[in-house]
């Protein structure tokens, strides 16, 4: 149980480790730009929002904007970074989940993520399209995205390790975190296209597949 909670300090991004005043200001501006951009994305869409509109809304010069984010993709990366930090912080605070079975913990993580990105659905969809292009920074082959991905994997790995140590599942090692990452991505893809009321189809899919996965892991066989 305690592992994840102890590691809180290590998980935080290096930037935030010892923030000086300047760094703090810089971070604040970044957040403001992101906020302005997200508002515009959800109003106009990712592709139709211009850097000029973003800088206007964030009340900075367009040139300054480029100092912070070279491209819209950098902005998207920053968004994901913030999301991940928010998600892990949230998970730390959920003491109710401490004794929950692994399937519920993982459910809660993905569901929380979906809740957080719900206002930016269109944006996420657009970023997805973008990420499929090999030259994109959002592509997992880019170092920037890779870094973020590793941070994510470590987070999941710790959640899985808790379950391993509690004897809930056999040792799955790094593979478990990778597999879950793919699953997480698949769920988001499904969620983006889910037109059922309240996207309840996603909830059912998420619940059933996690339970099945856990029971397969537990029994160590693919037999029904």
């Amino acid at each position: 149980m305690t592992i994840t909670r102890k590691k809180k300090a290590r998980r935080a991004s290096p930037r935030a480790a010892k923030p000086g005043r300047r760094a703090q200001n810089k971070e604040r501006t970044r957040k403001e730009i992101l906020k302005a951009a997200l508002e515009l994305f959800s109003k106009k869409g990712f592709f139709r929002t211009t850097t000029r509109q973003i800088s206007n809304r964030a009340r900075i010069a367009e040139g300054t904007l480029f100092n912070y984010f070279e491209t819209k993709e950098d902005l998207a990366l920053y968004f994901f970074e913030q999301e991940l930090a928010g998600l892990t912080d949230w998970y730390q605070s959920q003491t109710k989940l401490d004794r929950a079975p692994l399937a519920e913990k993982l459910f809660a993580i993905i569901h929380r993520h979906l809740e957080r990105i719900t206002p930016y659905e269109e944006f996420i969809g657009a970023v997805y399209l973008r990420a499929l292009q090999p030259v994109s920074k959002l592509n997992l082959l880019s170092l920037e995205a890779h870094e973020l991905n590793v941070r994510y994997l470590r987070f999941i790995q710790e959640v899985l390790r808790e379950a391993e140590e509690a004897g809930e599942i056999p040792k799955v090692g790094d593979f478990g975190a990778y597999a879950f990452g793919l699953f997480h991505l698949a769920i988001i893809t499904y969620w983006l296209q889910d037109i059922s009321p309240g996207k309840e189809n996603t909830l059912a899919l998420l619940d059933r597949s996690l339970k099945i996965a856990q029971s397969i892991l537990k029994r160590g066989t693919w037999e029904w």
Binding site: A100, A103, E104, F107, P197, K199, L203, D207
Partner: peptide
């Protein structure tokens, strides 16, 4: 139907009602 763990019950409540149980009830047993 399969049982719902507290996280799912809460999520399904939100999916159908638009808000989480803790936003509309004084208390709801998990």
């Amino acid at each position: 139907a399969p049982g719902m763990h507290p996280s799912l019950a809460r999520a399904q409540f939100k999916a159908s009602f638009g808000r989480f149980p803790e936003q509309v009830f004084r208390a709801l047993d998990a």
